[in-house]
């Protein structure tokens, strides 16, 4: 129940609004509502979905689109590795974790990362399911609403709704800067991301994660070593 309430509040409203922007993009690209909903339900990771619709609209090849989506969503791998130990109680069946993994996306992940450590282990997975299923359903609702409203919604409002997603993510992380190594990683990543995108648009994000992440890790270790001596 706590998870349901957490998901339905401000995070759900913001994510839902972001998907209103996505829904109207879907319609403007000539994609039927059903397939737009399939995209939200089956991928549920908005940056990759925007890349998909954008590339589809300009007529990119099937393989190009799938590869671009894969590279855009690579963050889900390390995010999952970091979150799973929080969700897993000693007796949790593996399939429950593999199912939960589908619902790992930035909003629910950030909520779980912040709230799980203060919860009893057996309460964490139900909390995660409650939060993310609510968010997931609000995303589907937002996609449908955006599709219906497309065209009637002023163009600048659609822009604002799409813009909500990155600024919301930005604030979610700006409010969680307690961990030194991770804060350094975010600072370096924020700078390296756009720079490496100029160098190699396809691989830029992946290289950003590996280089900025490793550098932050090394700096944090060096700092610890220096403090000890």
């Amino acid at each position: 129940m706590l998870g349901l309430r957490t998901g339905a509040g401000i995070p759900g409203l913001i994510l839902g609004s972001t998907y209103v922007g996505f829904g109207s993009m879907v319609r403007e690209s000539g994609i039927p509502l059903g397939l737009g909903l399939v995209s939200t339900a089956s991928s549920w990771a908005i940056p990759g979905q925007i890349v998909l619709v954008e590339l589809w609209a300009v007529g990119a090849s099937i393989l190009t689109i799938i590869a671009a989506v894969a590279l855009t969503n690579a963050r889900l791998l390390p995010m999952t590795v970091v979150l799973v130990p929080q969700l897993r109680a000693p007796d949790t069946a593996p399939w429950k974790i593999y199912l939960a993994a589908h619902f790992i996306a930035v909003t629910g992940w950030a909520l779980a990362m912040r709230q799980c450590p203060s919860m009893a282990p057996e309460r964490r997975l139900p909390f995660f399911y409650g939060t993310t299923l609510t968010l997931w359903m609000m995303s589907l609702g937002g996609t449908a609403l955006g599709f219906i409203l497309a065209g009637t919604l002023p163009y600048h409002v659609t822009l604002g709704l799409v813009f909500m997603n990155p600024i919301y993510f930005m604030l979610v992380f700006a409010s969680d800067l307690r961990h030194r190594a991770r804060t350094i990683a975010m600072g370096l990543g924020a700078v390296a991301g756009p720079l490496l995108h100029f160098l190699t648009p396809d691989w830029g994000l992946l290289i950003t994660g590996l280089v900025a992440g490793s550098l932050a890790f090394a700096l944090d270790r060096a700092w610890r070593g220096w403090r000890r001596t």
Binding site: R75, F173, G189, G193, P194, G213
Partner: peptide
């Protein structure tokens, strides 16, 4: 964890500075 946070921050700043879509 460092890689995850760097990737996320890189993605967010790219979404703001060099967005795709509308």
């Amino acid at each position: 964890a460092c890689v995850a946070y760097a990737l996320l921050a890189g993605l967010i700043s790219r979404l703001i500075l060099l967005p795709q879509g509308p």
